[in-house]
Design a protein around this nucleic acid. Structure first.
Length: 481
RNA sequence: GCACCGUUCGUCUAGGGGUUAGGACACCGCCCUUUCAAGGCGGUAACACGGGUUCAAUUCCCGUACGGUGUACCA
């Protein structure tokens, strides 16, 4: 049984990179009929942000990522919040102390800083020096016991074998090998008694029976430490898969400095969750076919780790917008109308009958990027109170006698008959224009402006048909008078 | 600095020892057209570099360059 987890820390809003990691975990689990778990990694007590857990859970739900186990849904492997598993980590650290794969260290922050400065000046890589710092090896058994007994501040560090190679396999990158001398004696338990990510993550993944660890590439360099931990505990390792990073236009890890990066931002801008999810899925993975628009079910069907790419991907807002348009055009107009109706009513628009709104959606969906654009873009359909037209444009029509005559002619010739076919409509316009000494091409733009107060929109024939003869005539009459 | 990872059109990517190196977004042009879109058709544009291996390398190997990540009592 495949069991995967998404393990965010509640230090802020859900990042779109995290969303992708969560999505890939979810898709992988569903593809294999497995279980997707949400685990909150809140072992850094200094960086907690209030409400972050709730926000992340709701953003994930919005995006369509579902969890089978987690703090919000329960499960048999809880608790799913690390701060509620505090005792577990201490117990496990104790195990490592006893079997000699971890040890106590008593160095202060200042002593560690001094050590790093020394190393930097000597031109060597900063790394905990087990043989010269204040730890149970250099202090001896009695002194260590004394310090522990008196409650001196201490941490637990991983005892990394200096002369061994650490090997593991990554599902995306292949076989990895790192020499022990390159691996730091990672702190496992901090002086506040809380575990670091490294310890907590390994203990929890084992206890929660995680089979595949799918996470961002930023974890690749510390994976050897995790491998060593599994070994120290005598546990089987899960499979690892390190995802390529999502990058900004400068090819850096996507960050706040660069436009929208939070799931919430996209939600606020009016992206469909399915469009965002679909785009994000394609950012670092491809199905090997030319299909680009995928329902969630299709993504679950198609997703495999083998087809995840190795290199980082720049987030392309253009393509995301294109994706959103695909969903806008394909969606059921009545559903879209239902979605946008509250916004229209909020505006106090008079014509928000669901069926009518759905017709407006159908008429204009190719001309907008976001559903909510309709609120402004189609105000002349939803309301009889039209926006102000720019003075100059209005004047030039009003001052043109021939045009006024033509529009007046149209006003009197407009009948249900004319709206039977586009040709009938055209014929009527041509006649009305000719009678005023104009070509029909000359009157179309002014006609649109008078009726909609806008220079762009759908075909006039369709627009008037939807507006209705009465409302159209009222606007023409008002202008001519 | 050191370690690790990566490198096909501007972007996301397919491909993989012999291909006209394919698609999508963006861009440009044409068509359609009463506007703006949408749509249709077409176009510009890529294998980082240097050595091997091979009859043949963009594809395999090794270097170099460039980029990224990591190097915390953060995750």
């Amino acid at each position: 049984m495949v069991r995967v987890r998404f393990a965010p820390s509640p230090t802020g809003f859900l990042h779109v990179g995290s969303l992708r990691t969560a999505l890939y975990n979810f898709l992988f689990a569903r593809h294999h009929g497995g279980v997707c778990i949400l685990r909150i990694e809140d072992t850094d007590r200094t960086r907690l942000v209030e409400g972050a857990i709730e926000e992340q859970i709701s953003s994930l739900a919005w995006a369509g990522v579902e969890f089978d186990e987690g703090p919000h849904v329960g499960g048999n492997h809880g608790p799913y919040i690390q701060s509620e598993r505090f005792d577990l980590y201490a117990k496990h650290a104790e195990l490592l102390i006893q079997n000699g794969t971890a040890y106590y260290a008593f160095d202060t922050a200042e002593e560690l800083d001094a050590m790093r400065t020394r190393q930097q000046q000597a031109g060597i890589a900063p790394k905990y020096d087990r043989s010269s710092m204040r730890n149970q090896y250099t202090l001896g058994e009695n002194e260590t016991k004394r310090l522990l007994a008196e409650g001196a501040p201490r941490v637990v560090r991983l005892h990394v074998p200096l002369h061994e190679e650490v090997r593991f396999h990554d599902e995306i990158r292949g076989d990895m090998v790192v020499h022990g001398r390159e691996i730091d004696d990672q702190i496992l338990v901090k002086s506040d008694g809380f575990p670091t990510y490294h310890l907590a993550n390994v203990v929890d993944d084992h206890l929660m029976e995680i089979t595949h660890v799918i996470r961002g590439e930023e974890w690749l360099p510390s994976t050897p430490k995790h491998v060593l931990l599994y070994r120290a505990f005598g546990w089987d390792m899960p499979a690892f898969a390190h995802l390529p990073l999502m990058l900004d236009a400068q090819r850096k890890k996507l960050s706040k400095r660069f436009g929208s990066v939070m799931a919430q931002d996209f939600r606020d801008q009016g992206y469909f969750p399915a469009a965002l999810t679909n785009y994000v899925a394609l950012c670092g993975w491809n199905p090997g076919t030319e299909q680009e628009v995928f329902s969630m079910a299709e993504l679950q069907q198609a997703f495999t780790l083998e087809r995840v790419s190795k290199s980082g991907a720049i987030f392309d807002y253009n393509k995301l917008q294109w994706m959103n348009s695909q969903y806008l055009v394909a969606a059921d107009p009545v559903e879209l109308a239902t979605e946008i109706k509250p916004l229209l009513d909020e505006r106090g628009y008079a014509y928000t009958d669901l069926e009518f709104v759905a017709s407006v959606v159908t008429l204009l969906k190719h001309r907008i990027h976001f559903l909510k654009d309709l609120v402004e873009f189609a105000d002349y359909l939803f309301s009889d109170t039209l926006t102000e037209v720019e003075q100059g444009a209005w004047q030039s029509i009003a001052a043109d006698d021939a045009l006024r005559t033509a529009l007046s002619n149209i006003n009197s010739s407009l009948t249900e008959e004319c709206l039977q076919t586009p040709d009938a409509f055209k014929a009527m316009i041509a006649q009305a224009a000719e009678a005023a000494g104009l070509k029909s091409g000359k009157v179309m733009k002014p006609l649109r402006l008078v009726i909609t107060h806008r220079e762009v929109g759908a075909e006039l024939f369709d627009t008037i048909k939807l507006l209705g003869i009465d409302r159209t005539k009222r606007r023409l009459t008002e202008f001519v008078a």
